[in-house]
Write a protein that binds this DNA or RNA. Structure first.
Lengths: 208, 208
DNA sequence: TTATTTTAATACCGATCGGTATTTAAATAG
DNA sequence: CTATTTAAATACCGATCGGTATTAAAATAA
């Protein structure tokens, strides 16, 4: 046991709770007092643990990306499944997160993009970094799929990556509107029709 | 000329300016003082003309829908062009509005959806009404197109309408991220590939 | 025990918020 | 001219904001 009075609250638990508050209500509508009441950690403790409100928000956003964003990207990166399967799973994972009844609806990152106009520059940079990471993973994955012959020669990996990034945003907004999971499923069915896939026979012929 | 001291500011101009402030910065980050300074109408005048802050926001959102939402819906309703042309124009109109350098980026309605968690019930109802109006127009249009044989018999008009509503949200978020118009154009190209269109020959054969 | 360290808890700071009462200015009616 | 009407302009209200100084409590070290 360390020297002084023991902590009442686990900072990790506090940060997770702060994340859900910012996710649900946004930066402005979540006061430090709200966080203090919801977490049980008094305001001076919050400032000591996390810095000021901007720093707390940035840490919450990083935690969100680590928990809800990176795993999906990692699945894409490591996927050895057909491109349509991998990308469908990717969007279904997004829909599962955005529509999870245990969490605020929608996507904290999308919410932050919308509200970023008056964010401080550290937060803007963080958002930009997250957006670019996601786009780069999608571009890389689609480029490889094209090289492997799974996607037609006319495929534009960058444009298609932006399309899928847009589908994530769409799912987040629709979930925030209250769209049921079943409707999000149908949405994904339609969104996946855009893939310029090479058929299995063509692929076999091309590789043989 | 009416009886008393003449108005310094045209309320319509003031409301339009308030609209751009709320559109750019959102409800919480736009203070009544900000509106007063930006418009030249002092705070008591704002309250006398528009009611409280919630009422001003609601009026600004209604103005936005009238100027940026309804014309596009009217085009869809009145369209006698091929379904792919009409819907492409619809999305291009959305992209033009969301990416207009003269205005805040993105879509005020999408921003309001994201921020609606802590809105008062009048604003929530207004947002819900706008969403439903748009969806109803799309469903009706797609249903008619299916009946006319322009879309395949397997087409689900409700699901496809939600898809297009989602594309609007996607375009709004991508524009808010700073996506250039050219990239939004490519996005629309891909998004339009989902249409389960009947070919011109099939359509002629079916009608003949 | 007593001193020290670390945190919790309370109270408080100036600034800003949404909203309004009051006073001043600009027009018309008589 | 004076009275009246309407709006502008200023000042102000209590509440809440982000952030902090201060005090009280709970642990260890001696």
């Amino acid at each position: 046991m360390p020297r002084g009075r023991p902590r009442k609250c686990d900072p990790e638990v506090v940060l997770r709770k702060a994340m859900t508050l910012f996710w649900e209500n946004g930066f402005d509508a979540t006061s430090m007092n709200d966080v203090a009441v919801a977490t049980g950690m008094a305001k001076p403790g919050l400032y000591e643990c996390f810095g000021d409100k901007n720093a707390l928000y940035a840490k919450a956003l990083k935690l969100y990306f680590k928990e809800y964003g990176e795993p999906g990207l990692q699945c894409i990166r490591a996927s050895n499944q057909p491109v349509s399967t991998a990308l469908r799973q990717y969007l279904e994972n997004v829909a599962a997160g955005a529509g999870d009844p245990e969490c605020p609806s929608g996507c904290f990152i999308v919410n932050s993009i919308i509200g970023s106009a008056q964010s401080d520059s550290e937060i803007k940079d963080l958002i930009r970094d997250i957006i670019n990471q996601r786009l780069d993973v999608l571009i890389e994955y689609l480029s490889v799929a094209k090289e492997k012959g799974e996607l037609t020669a006319e495929t534009d990996p960058e444009a298609l990556a932006l399309y899928f990034a847009g589908q994530e945003a769409a799912i987040a907004v629709l979930a925030r509107e209250g769209a049921e999971p079943e409707k999000l499923g149908k949405f994904i069915d339609i969104a996946m029709k855009t893939l310029p896939q090479v058929s299995a026979e063509e692929l076999a012929a091309g590789q043989g």
